[in-house]
């Protein structure tokens, strides 16, 4: 068994929290530059220009890309040959989140009770998804998920007879209803299959794929392209000001499901699209 001290985990989480909030992912920045060339709307072009300037300003001045520095959503692949020493995995992650959000001057956006709404003061607890995998490594992905785009996400338990058309219509309709609210240009994660709780998790995991990575199955990668085209035909455009580019990418992840079900979840992400991974 390999021993890993809890502080290694909390330090990694803390650094990831800061870095994803200050530095935009390169693939997203490239998509902005490409988008500025493709976008026909003058206001849309202006938005892309501001997003590029914003990425530069955040990196130069050491402040977050967006004031909504998000809820920390942490994905952990824990090798089954690893023993964590000193504290629980959950505590290690939450201590890391509190440290990162504190040291990094990030906004604390978590309230303890959904109704009495008193801020927890350190952006914990994080939402943690852990899977046990073969090996002796720990892979940690931190994503910072803003409220504006999360609020526009949706789940539908379709009947299997709805088929491809039902899936496409639901995704496009969700983006249409969201309009300018989730800060387009968007990244769209889609989970198809599984059940009531797994489909949204598939959608969230789909958002972690690099922009250049398609679904490995040709049928589903074609559906990703078809949905992206339909979304961009909506005309919502950057920030909803009208334009050709409403979304930069659609990523679908699938899982087997019950004979009676066709769950579809759409997780919308804003253009900041903050996530990064380290391996310990």
């Amino acid at each position: 068994m390999r021993e890993v001290h809890w502080e290694e985990i909390s330090t990694a989480v803390s650094e990831l929290c800061k870095n994803i909030n200050y530095y935009i992912n390169q693939d997203v920045l490239e998509a902005f530059k490409k988008g500025m060339g493709v976008e026909e709307s003058p206001l849309g072009k202006k938005v892309f220009c501001q997003l590029i300037e914003n990425a530069e300003a955040a990196a130069e001045e050491g402040i977050p890309l967006c004031q909504d520095t998000g809820l920390a959503v942490v994905f952990i692949s824990l090798g089954q040959e690893v023993v964590i020493k000193g504290k629980s995995l959950t505590d290690a992650v939450n201590i890391g989140v509190a440290k990162g959000y504190g040291e990094g001057y990030l906004r604390k956006s978590v309230v303890k009770d959904p109704l009495n709404r008193v801020n927890t003061g350190d952006n914990t607890p994080a939402i943690i998804h852990t899977e046990i995998v073969p090996g002796d490594k720990i892979k940690i992905t931190v994503s910072a998920k803003g409220g504006g785009s999360e609020n526009m996400s949706a789940l539908s338990m379709l009947p299997p007879s709805a088929g491809s058309e039902g899936i496409i219509d639901f995704v496009v309709d969700t983006v249409k209803k969201a309009g300018p609210n989730p800060c387009p240009p968007l990244l769209i994660g889609v989970g198809v299959g599984g059940n009531f709780e797994l489909a949204p998790l598939l959608a969230k995991r789909a958002l972690l794929r690099p922009l250049s990575e398609k679904n490995k199955d040709e049928f589903w990668s074609k559906m990703e392209e078809a949905i992206l085209q339909k979304i961009n035909n909506l005309g919502i455009g950057p920030q909803g000001f009208g334009g050709r580019i409403t979304a930069l990418k659609v990523s679908i992840e699938t899982f087997p499901c019950h004979i009676a079900s066709l769950p579809v979840a759409v997780n919308i992400d804003c253009h900041c699209h903050r996530h990064s991974t380290v391996e310990i």
Binding site: L51, A57, A58, I63, C66, P180, Q239
Partner: peptide, 12 residues
């Protein structure tokens, strides 16, 4: 309206 997600730029 101002550009959502451009908080670093706007702060200037």
């Amino acid at each position: 309206v101002t550009v959502g997600g451009a908080g670093a730029l706007i702060s200037k």
